[in-house]
Amino acid sequence: MVPQVLIPLAAELAPPERRAGVVAGVQIGLMTGIIGSRVVGGVVGEALGWRSVYLLAAVLTALAGSVRSRPPEFIASLERMTAFGRIGRPDEIVSVVAFLASPEAGWVTGQNIRVNGGAV
């Protein structure tokens, strides 16, 4: 979901005269990251086994999530992008993940479920 939020966020935060360049830079960075991660994942998987790729991804995700200091203008811009006018709470996200991991979600297959407060 980060790419869907990051590009409009960069456009909103950039001054109008630099907006196109900023959006292009973010898009280039995202594509480089996507392609680079495929290469690194393949090399790590080949060298250490496929489970190590998932372990590394979990560790990196936990590290990224532990960074708590966000500039107030960043939070405010995220809040303006949602229908509810606020960012989500962890319990709101966890409840959806818990449902999808439960037997009740057995017929949910191959779906993109956006838990984003109606972000536009």
Rank of each mutant, 00 (worst) to 15 (best):
S77L: 08
V59T: 11
P103V: 03
E73L: 00
I75A: 11
P71G: 13
R89M: 05
A64N: 12
A64V: 11
P16I: 11
T82M: 04
V59E: 04
R38D: 13
V22C: 09
V40W: 10
R89W: 06
V44R: 02
F74E: 10
A62Y: 07
P103G: 11
L55K: 12
E92K: 07
L55H: 12
I34H: 07
A64T: 11
S37M: 08
F84K: 12
P90V: 01
E17A: 13
V53Y: 02
P16M: 12
T82Y: 03
G36W: 05
G65W: 03
E46C: 05
G36I: 08
Q27T: 15
R114H: 08
E104N: 05
R80F: 12
G25D: 04
Y54Q: 13
T32Y: 02
L63P: 00
D91L: 02
S95L: 10
L78I: 05
I34E: 10
R80N: 07
V67P: 00
G88W: 02
N116M: 01
S69T: 08
I28K: 08
E79G: 00
A57D: 08
A64E: 08
L30K: 05
S52W: 10
V108Q: 06
E79D: 03
F99G: 07
G41Y: 04
L63S: 05
A14P: 01
V53H: 06
E46W: 14
P90E: 00
T109A: 15
S77A: 15
V53Q: 04
V23S: 07
R19G: 05
G106L: 06
L63T: 00
G29A: 13
F84Y: 14
F84V: 15
I75N: 06
I113N: 01
G33L: 05
G25H: 06
A62L: 12
S37G: 09
I87L: 12
S37C: 08
P16G: 10
P72V: 12
R38T: 12
I93F: 14
